[in-house]
Simulated assay, not measured.
Amino acid sequence: MRCVIVHYHELALKGRNRNFFEQRLVLNIRYVLQDLGVKRIERLRSRIRILLPAQLDDQIVTERLARVFGIANFSLAESVPLDLANPDLRELMRGAAEAVQHRAFDTFRITAKRADKRLSLTSMDVERAVGEHLREATNKKVRLIDPDLTVYIELLSKEAFYSTGKIQGPGGMPVGVSGTVACLISGGIDSPVAAYRMMKRGCDAVFVHFTGRPLVSRASEEKVHELVKLLSAYQRHSRLYVVPFGEIQREIVARAPAPYRVVLYRRLMVRIAGEFANREHCWGLVTGDSLGQVASQTPENLCVIEEASEFPILRPLIGMDKLEITEEATRIGTFPISIEPDQDCCSLFTPAHPSTKTRLDDIRKVERALDIGGLVKQGIDKAENTTFTFPE
């Protein structure tokens, strides 16, 4: 029987709540495979088994499961029946030999795990028996350290599974177990990585983008659509709010001292994003801030910006440097999109010498000259929203 065996790590530590986390993981797996004809997904002993239709392409299954948070690793496997009291390994040996016959290798090892300790054979007994059979069948050498090929065997109550490789999953927690957060996404390198990290911790992500329109083109919006579409492969659906921010910035420029503009922009952004967070039943806002990277990300300015938000502001990248963030963006695939040229609203009307140690009393004094409520309402009323689903 052709199947996938899914393993998870962190979920196994959840004690009495483990059932909830496992059910959510199964639900997410079922969702990403539903259009491929997969009907049976079962929870076994600390693992999940997915029964695959006969003609289903392994590559498609691999690509989908590699983006399901909560999966530590998985194997494309075959199964044979197993009798606990009187185990007969001949069918397991034959299947393992068939699985490796078209593989190019000189050395191999067998790694067996016994999930049900009532089995009369130990893991080492199985490794020796199957290893000896493969050695005779292939005339290849056994090497326990760094072999060319590893055959993985999992022994359950009524079945044994064998596979010739493990595929790394993204790890983390299943999306949906940690509520919903609103992610401010700029189209740059940092904010998509911040959203990815929160999704990996089990959060559903709603996205809010501030564009310089009507003073600039839609280039940044097109980039953000691509980024959200890519990130939607890690959760079942995403909603993106695009807020035209150019006129709001022009109002700030006309009425506020230049050094405070950047902080004022950000305080208005978190207020507007907070309104969408309320609408989407979020519990927090997420930004791509990295401590000290730009003027708005100094300790003093971060504190002043957060004061304007009714939600906690989560900053998963706060202790990372640009190289670390870029490496992660490259790994998850957002980097090539993020570096495409665009016209970012944050670069509009940027002062030559922005304040890096803004005091809350000073910024409140400046805001008295602005119709903050009216500007927030303007941003909300003119916002556009798009929904993305995966699979499309």
Rank of each mutant, 00 (worst) to 15 (best):
N139C: 00
I153F: 09
V142P: 00
V100N: 07
Y152G: 02
N86A: 14
S157R: 13
D125I: 06
S157M: 04
D88A: 06
V175E: 04
T111Y: 09
R128V: 02
A160T: 01
G172D: 01
S157N: 10
I71Q: 05
S79W: 11
A85L: 14
I167Q: 00
G165M: 07
D106K: 12
S120N: 08
E136S: 07
R94Y: 04
A85Q: 14
E78M: 13
D116P: 05
A77N: 02
F108R: 04
G169F: 05
F108C: 11
S163Q: 11
K158L: 08
K141N: 04
L149E: 11
V100W: 06
S157P: 00
V100I: 15
P170V: 02
F161I: 06
D83F: 13
R128T: 01
M124R: 14
Y152F: 15
E136R: 07
I153N: 05
A112R: 07
G70I: 09
K113S: 12
L119M: 01
A112L: 04
M124F: 13
N86E: 14
G165Y: 08
G171N: 09
V130D: 01
L92G: 01
T150D: 15
Y162M: 14
Y152L: 06
S75N: 12
V130N: 00
M93N: 00
T107E: 05
L92C: 06
K158Y: 08
L82S: 05
R143V: 08
R118Y: 11
P87M: 02
A96V: 09
R103Q: 15
V80W: 12
Y152N: 06
L92A: 08
E132F: 02
T150I: 15
E159L: 12
R118P: 08
F105E: 00
T122R: 11
A85D: 14
Q168D: 12
E159I: 10
L144H: 04
A96Q: 03
I153V: 15
L82H: 07
R103V: 15
E136K: 07
G171S: 07
A99Y: 03
S75C: 13
G172V: 03
T111C: 10
R109Y: 06
L144C: 04
K117M: 09
D148L: 01
R90C: 01
K117A: 12
V151D: 12
K140S: 15
P87G: 03
T107G: 06
G165T: 08
D106G: 14
R114W: 10
R90Q: 10
V80E: 12
E136H: 04
K113A: 10
E127M: 06
Q101L: 12
R103A: 14
A99K: 11
R143H: 10
D116T: 11
I167P: 00
L89C: 08
H133Y: 09
L89W: 08
Y162H: 10
D106Y: 08
A72W: 01
F108T: 05
T107P: 03
A160Q: 02
F105L: 00
L92T: 05
I153C: 09
I167V: 09
A137R: 12
E132L: 09
T150Q: 14
H133G: 00
F161L: 13
P170K: 04
D116G: 06
T150H: 12
K117Q: 14
K113Q: 12
K117E: 14
V80I: 11
K158G: 14
